[in-house]
Amino acid sequence: MAFAIETRGVTKQYVEGEASTLALAGIDLTVSRGEVVLLMGPSGSGKTTLLSIMGCILRPTAGQVILEGHDVTAMSEKDLPAMRLKHIGFVFQGFNLFPTLSVGENVELSLSLKGVRGREAKKEAHRLLDLVGIEHKYKAFPADISGGQKQRVAIARAVAGSPVAILADEPTAALDSHTGKAVIGMMARLAHIENRAVVIVTHDGRLAEFADRIVWMEDGVLAKVPHTATDNLHLHPVEPSAETQLGI
């Protein structure tokens, strides 16, 4: 089976002068289309580093990243932006919308970078914004909408152009719990309806109910999901199990 994203023995070491920090140590992880994976763990455990590597923004020190069957670690630096553009959609903690563009234009920009322009881009932008329930704000500017609405726009922008994977970094951190759950629920639905692989880095255990799988990280390695992190969760569904994934 071809995975949407696969990491094989991914290691990342930061060297500064004589000091070096091992951020990731041999991570093996696969994410399939239509699957929602929560990447959890304490601060500094390497979640965002792993997400950056999966998103072809950062290069691993060792190991392989396979994206839709392409070994991106073998690619040159100048080929990576095209891979990101074609296969990855990002959702950021701070939304990262373009404040001088309207809601619709934010989505249109993403589409136009992928070669969809003019009327076709407008039509698709309307469709995507309708999908996330914010089509009526098409002409509004980011400054004029709420945080939850901004994140919906960011999601619409991320799924524009049908990337194979959506990578989200703390997408609910700037939202209240109710809005956060609504946003993640929406991402989960998109993953299932549109058959996208979704990886979400989060500290928020309450989001586990939307995950197909939880991957726990500690000190740069995958670890067993601790009971303290899941005791209060209503995991639904929580498999395929982290243990299987981790081989423990």
């Binding site: 932006p81 095209a82 891979m83 990002f90 990262n96 993403s110 970078l113």
Partner: peptide, 18 residues
């Protein structure tokens, strides 16, 4: 002022030329 937006564009995969 817009450096974060340019970073976002690059992260999204926009080529340097754009």
């Amino acid at each position: 002022d817009h450096i974060r937006e340019y970073g976002t564009l690059k992260a999204m995969g926009a080529p340097n030329s754009y």
